[in-house]
């Protein structure tokens, strides 16, 4: 069982991100880290490979400046190898451009299963995984809260607003996993040391049989025209209970048409 995991390397999630004032895109010039939402896919992949009795977990990532910090974290968790696509020509890529790059890289892996997070924690478009699946001609299942492999099929409990659907589809396939599908492990010190010697293949756009016209600013079909700050949240109303607290709560909920 060979599994590929799409992982994003994002600016430190602990400090607020900055937008470039002219391009309105997130500044990604500093050190990047493994997107916390991708820890679930990496852990899921490690557990599925172990349950299958063997195989490899390959990470696929696109990042600026040859960034590998986040890949090292995922390798320290136990992934076997990684492919990084880093190229100045990729700057300005939109979700579809990124999907084209990752799809080409994933073709080199020939995985039985491709995992991704439902969305990244910096861009939040949530569109990339299904675009990758479409480009590769693979079936995809989104929002998995449980993933099992049975023979040549993947069985998924797919989170819905009211519960979950049980979905199955033949492999190879692409599945996006929610936070909570598994509990990601912490990398051990031994894992961190082992990660140093795990291979990271670094590729350019030209290595992927793509033209720089397909990706980056040139290939982007979308443009961020302007960015407005979110409206500040209004202060809440403080209700002091003077014996009628329950009535006030009921009235408030009725006003919201919740009850």
């Amino acid at each position: 069982m060979n599994i590929a995991v799409c992982v994003k390397q994002v600016p430190d999630t602990a400090s607020p991100g900055r937008l470039d004032p002219t391009t309105h895109t997130l500044e990604r010039s500093g050190k990047l880290m493994l997107d916390p939402s991708d820890e679930f896919g990496v852990e899921m992949a490690l557990q599925l490979v172990q349950a299958a009795g063997g195989g490899e977990v390959t990470l696929v990532s696109m990042a600026p400046h040859g960034e590998i910090s986040g890949l090292r974290t995922a390798l320290a968790m136990g992934a076997d190898k990684a492919i990084l696509i880093s190229d100045e020509g990729l700057q300005g890529s939109d979700a579809l451009g990124t999907a084209k790059v990752l799809a080409k890289a994933l073709q080199r892996v020939q995985a039985d299963l491709i995992l991704a997070a439902t969305e990244s924690t910096d861009g939040y478009t949530g569109t990339l995984p299904v675009q990758v699946a479409e480009l590769l001609g693979l079936p995809s299942i989104t929002f998995a809260k449980r993933v099992r492999i049975e023979g040549q099929k993947v069985l998924v409990d797919r989170q819905t607003e009211t519960g979950f659907d049980e979905v199955e589809c033949p492999l190879p396939a692409l599945v996006t996993v929610t936070a909570g599908v598994v509990e990601p492990r912490y990398p051990s010190f031994k894992g961190i040391m082992a990660a140093k010697s795990r291979p990271i293949e670094q590729l350019k756009v030209a290595d992927l049989d793509l033209s720089t016209d397909d990706v980056g600013w040139h290939g982007a079909g979308q443009e961020i025209v302007s960015v407005e700050p979110a409206e500040a949240r209004q202060a809440g109303e403080i209700v002091v209970d003077e014996g009628d607290g329950h009535e006030r709560i009921v009235a408030f909920l009725e006003q919201l048409k919740v009850i």
């Binding site: 090292r72 974290t73 320290a76 912490y186 990398p187 051990s188 010190f189 961190i192 040391m193 140093k196």
Partner: peptide, 15 residues
């Protein structure tokens, strides 16, 4: 070292 910094972050996250 990078490894020491990486492990510091792991222990910090764990803690």
């Amino acid at each position: 070292s990078d490894e020491q910094e990486s492990f510091r972050k792991v222990v910090k996250d764990f803690a």
